[in-house]
Amino acid sequence: MSTQEISLEELRQRQSRFRGLEAGHRACLGCGQALAARWVLEAAGPDVVVANATGCLEVFTTPWPESAWRVPWLHSLFENTGAVAAGLEAALKVQGKTAKALAFAGDGGTFDIGFQALSGLLEREHDVLYVCYDNEGYMNTGVQRSGSTPHAAATTTSPAGRARLGKRHLKKDILAIIASHHIAYAATASIAYPEDLKRKVRQALLITGPTFLHLHAPCPLGWGHDGSLSVEVARLAVQTGLFPLIEMERGQVIGVMPLRTIRPVADYLKLQGRFGHLFRDDPRAREELEHLQALADHNIEVFNLRADRPDPADSEGADTVRRGRRRF
């Protein structure tokens, strides 16, 4: 069958994947969150109900009367996603329905304003997969710093100037906090590793009870890089050790994606405008660069990310290329 024999509309209907998030949404070019959300639903399938926090994902998918969602979806407020999802789950449970409740929120809605509802959700052991799309700032409101913004990153409320070089504080270690709730599964994932991401979604959905996925999803606008670089930037975040891909069960690390080739943090930082001030000729900038390198090294050490030698079983964690049966 070729494009002469089938219209694009029809072809779109016949894609061999679950289309939970449809085209026509208004995300920026190269939006990491749009990618991540689509993959989460691809992995989760149609038997879900989604509670979505206020934020880019909500705004760019649902300008009335349009919706990009093909799953039942509810946006209530910014800070209550954990609680709304808990309500969905309680209702599904009472009705004996098999559908799984998902909670989608950004880093602001997770690390900061929605943290209490999330903590309650985990503590009460609702059967909900909570997905945090982490783009490290309040991007929807115009790139303000959040508890997830990395140290030294410039945002509109932590700008780089003569006296200060971006955010003074550290990125909140949300996974450690989540892990302290003793939940059955919590993991990080990145849009640079879609198969790993989808596997973790499926893994989480196998579990009855609260699970948490922390997805690193670059924001070209807020991070100051070209949209075409979103996956590259995400990949470098992993390969530098700044965003380790790990899995935790009951608070214990049970798996990490080993890094065969560890890249210096500068490779990651220099692609992004928000770290541009770290590359100026200034001893404090150099100090901050060293600081970020030390944070990456710390992750590598703490999570034992270093892969000693090529191992055929680990494909560098990479989503290595799938080779089509029939090719052009």
Partner: peptide, 24 residues
């Protein structure tokens, strides 16, 4: 040359890359 690896199909944030049903 295309490797039919699905990367474009998979990585399009819209998605605006569609895959034909058969490999020809």
């Amino acid at each position: 040359s295309c490797l039919s690896c699905d990367n474009c199909w998979n990585l399009c944030p819209e998605p605006a890359v569609l895959k034909l049903p058969d490999e020809i």
